[in-house]
Design a binder for these strands. Structure first.
Lengths: 259, 259
DNA sequence: CCTCCTGACTAGTCAAGACAACTTATAGGC
DNA sequence: GCCTATAAGTTGTCTTGACTAGTCAGGAGG
């Protein structure tokens, strides 16, 4: 694993582990660059690169004249963990579950075709799943895929395993996504599946995922029970979060494509 | 401005401007490092440092063998813009407005004292304001400050100008914040002020802001009309957002202090 | 006309060294 | 005991040089 990766990445991994396992305690000073160089037997470049990575994720702060300090902070979730409900649940130590409500193939509406960058009336695959945490309903997920991609999913066992893992096996790898977070009242389907009162507030996340080449892989509409999940952002003066607050009158633009 | 800052920062600023002004068009290749070195008359280090900064903010992508490409992406909002309703509205080209509902001094409850890192029964200042965008209600903001800080706000003209600007004038500068985003049903006060039906879904953002020394400056509970605002996150495999999804049974921990 | 291969170019990685700016602890003076 | 000046140590910044691994266009061959 760490053998073929670049030196600075190995150093980074080693440092992350030391922080996580408490070898470097929160509030402590990190060893000086000089001692790290001596320990790892490298030059200053890779060491500084690894430290810069830690800093960019907020795990260490300060510096300039004195070694930086370890900061205990909610670790940023990896792209995969953030995208995949299954991986997220495992990360939390909870049992992910799912029940397919609907899996269908249908012609796209004009709006959906545009979101998926498809010609009008193209076929899309829609999958609606109830997601569970430790057997309790947590989220209702409505995903839309272009037919080329979605057809790989219909024969798969959607009740077990992650859609993303299935997609990866067939060579579809999302690498970029845009999430729009807001609140919405529960509709009849959510009332039925999530066991909430009609009109109850739900946390909605609409997602547009792209692969390497910039083509849209998925558009989704996830509705979370606020009693089961929340989103956290950590923000610093130095470190901008790739997060912004948008006026809703421009929400239509939010799903415009960049490239 | 750019005279005393380090070289790589100057290069970064210049490159950002070129992207914003369209000298470097989205989709275009960035000039090669060699040509940038020749143009700016520096060595490779600062040039690469500036490019790395652009990359970390998602403004350029790719590389390794070919010059990176300019990516048109929703620019991450600066810490100030993200914190301050006033600056955010101005950024959108809309007119920010506000009406103070309540500004009071009171003993803290146990829970609030803990959040603000104060001894039990310490005095806190609570300010509740209705926030407007172009004269339309958009958000109800409930902020709590330690008395030492809040007392500077009570005599201020809270109906005009930003709280953060006022705080900065008296030397209180937040540099780090944690935001927890979820959904909640409208309560009587929101029904009255935001003109929504009882139980209507609102987007809630709870915020804990720290200053340089790590002491809590503010804790707040903002409730947005989902028809007026949403949050956007852009996520990449390479670039982790400092954002995570959390199970709500751990929500009590979310406001635990780090340091 | 298409495919494949080669070579020029590019960015990623690493090393070693030098100086500037800053922090911290120590030693000295009051 | 307290404050201040100093010195040592640390990180930030920049340079130069080298090698590796990837991209891309153009030419040879089918």
């Amino acid at each position: 694993m760490t053998e073929n990766s670049p030196l600075h990445a190995q150093l980074y991994a080693e440092m992350v582990q030391r922080i996580r396992t408490g070898v470097w305690q929160p509030g402590d000073r990190v060893p000086s660059e000089k001692s790290l160089i001596a320990e790892f037997g490298t030059s200053r470049g890779p060491v500084r690169q690894a430290l810069a990575a830690l800093r960019s994720e907020g795990m260490i702060v300060g510096g300039r004249g004195a070694p930086p300090r370890v900061q205990r902070t909610a670790p940023a979730q990896s792209f995969d963990t953030f995208m995949s409900f299954t991986e997220w649940a495992r990360d939390l130590g909870m049992a992910p579950g799912q029940r397919v409500i609907e899996a269908s193939r249908r012609p796209a509406t004009e709006e959906i075709a545009q979101e998926l960058q498809l010609p009008p009336d193209a076929t899309v695959v829609e999958i609606i799943r109830l997601r569970l945490l430790d057997d309790k309903p947590a989220m209702l997920e409505r995903s839309l895929f272009p037919h080329e991609i979605g057809k790989q999913l219909l024969p798969a066992d959607l009740d077990n395993g992650s859609i993303y893992q299935t997609l990866r096996r067939v060579g579809v790898v999302p690498v970029r996504a845009r999430h729009v977070i807001d609140a919405i009242a529960a509709h009849p389907l959510e009332v039925e599946q999530l066991h909430v009162a009609p009109g109850a507030p739900l946390l909605r996340v609409r997602r547009l995922a792209y692969d390497e080449s910039g083509t849209v892989v998925e558009t989704a509409d996830d509705r979370y029970l606020p009693s089961m999940a929340a989103f956290i952002v950590e923000n610093t003066v130095e470190r901008r979060a790739p997060l912004s607050r948008q006026a809703a009158n421009t929400t239509a633009d939010l799903f415009e494509h960049d490239d």
